[in-house]
Amino acid sequence: MAAEASTTRAHVTRTVVIAAALTAALSILLLAFALPGVHSTPSDIRVGVVGSPTATAAIERPVDTAQPGAFDFSRPASEADARTAIERRDLDGALIVGDNGIRTLVTTAGSPSVATLVETLGNQVAQRSGSTSTVLDVRGFGGGDPKGVGLAAGALPLALGGWIGALVIMMTVRRPRALVITTVVFAGVGGLALTAILRFVLGTFDGRFWPTAAAAMLGIAATAFGVIGLRTLFGAAGLGIAGIALIVLGNPLSGLTSSPELLPAPWGAIGQYLPPGATGTLLRNTVFFDGHATAHPIVVLSAWLLIGLAFYAIATVRGRGDNDRVEEILDEEWDVEPESARAGAR
């Protein structure tokens, strides 16, 4: 009876611990997705102000007083310089102060949310000065997807696609060389498919197909190899780390549905070091801004790819990644009979 009571207590304790752990995980997941939206506020939105020193100062001082830290003002020499800075991703928008009112330059392709903020700022400035504001969208989305919904929705499929693809490849391909080749092929085909859907089905953009496809391929490869490297070297813990980086944190912190500048500091910046955020920024800047400001996301994704490959190579050299050990790990996890056992039976 004592042994039976002890077993019952152990089962109850285990049930409580599992339920508590899963509840904590769900709570963290909810907070990760909801908090950035709830506490979304502008921070350091880069706005150029073109006009006389007196006019620009009259614009900047009231805004800095009313919304400290929301906008980072600069003073381009001309409207042409402001437009060039926007196209190069050095500015998020600009206010051109003229005799006939305010001319507001925005870029919805950079971020519809930020474009709305800059447009609102232009309207407020015009109202204070008793003039009018006209809006010019310097870079917009394609005609089939004027709000860029396809690009904004791409973060989760990229994260889940790389995750699921890596798991399926590890389940079905056991030889290290074949696994690497299969992952590269998956990234290539997946990148082409993703770009084709955005371009020809959703109409999110109109040109630069191949550079955009290359960006998508790099994003998928970085995600997949990151998962493979973490899982093979660190086991189930590595898979958990990958899930946190890609889905729990990577997706809500990507800034694709709004902008990294609208997420609470420092989460927007952190999101750009995770594959979903880096891939989204790389795709956006490649297709809409002629490849400007792509160095950072390329470095981030290349690091994920190379570190994942390095982890996989280390696991192989240390014995966890050799053929027999990989089969043992994966077959235990997926409950599949090892190839070596099948060969012996034959």
Rank of each mutant, 00 (worst) to 15 (best):
G143Q: 11
L262C: 12
I102H: 03
L262A: 06
G255S: 01
R174C: 01
T232V: 11
I228W: 06
A224E: 07
I244N: 01
A303C: 06
L30V: 15
A70P: 07
L249H: 00
P146A: 09
A166M: 12
V50F: 12
I164E: 04
R284Y: 05
F71Q: 00
G93E: 02
L121N: 00
E261T: 12
L31W: 07
A126G: 10
G69E: 08
L121C: 00
L160K: 06
P36A: 03
R346K: 13
V168I: 15
E327F: 10
N323H: 11
A293F: 04
V185T: 03
R346E: 13
E60V: 11
I18Y: 12
H11I: 09
R83S: 11
D322V: 03
H292I: 06
G238S: 11
F205S: 07
A293K: 09
Y312G: 01
L274Q: 03
L192G: 13
R342G: 05
P76Q: 10
A303W: 05
R61T: 15
F288N: 00
V97G: 02
L218W: 02
I59Y: 01
P62E: 08
A187S: 15
R325P: 05
A152S: 05
V149Q: 04
G240Q: 07
G154R: 01
A58M: 04
T281N: 07
P275H: 05
T107A: 14
E333S: 09
T195A: 11
A80I: 06
A10K: 15
A153F: 03
A77M: 09
L262V: 07
A57K: 10
T13A: 14
A153Q: 09
V299L: 08
A66V: 08
F234T: 08
T134M: 04
A345Y: 12
I270E: 05
L282F: 08
G280K: 09
G130F: 08
N123H: 13
A82E: 10
I45M: 07
A213E: 08
L263D: 02
L218E: 04
M217V: 15
R177D: 09
A152W: 00
L194H: 10
R83F: 05
V97R: 06
I59P: 01
H292C: 11
G165H: 14
R199W: 14
L121Q: 00
L35N: 04
S113Q: 13
E333M: 09
G321W: 02
P68R: 03
A187P: 12
G142T: 06
E4R: 14
T108C: 02
V49G: 04
L198H: 14
L117D: 09
F186L: 14
D90P: 02
V138R: 08
A214W: 12
T134E: 13
I329L: 13
F33T: 00
P36V: 01
M170A: 13
S302N: 02
G207V: 13
T56E: 07
S259H: 11
F209C: 06
T116E: 14
L218A: 10
Y273W: 13
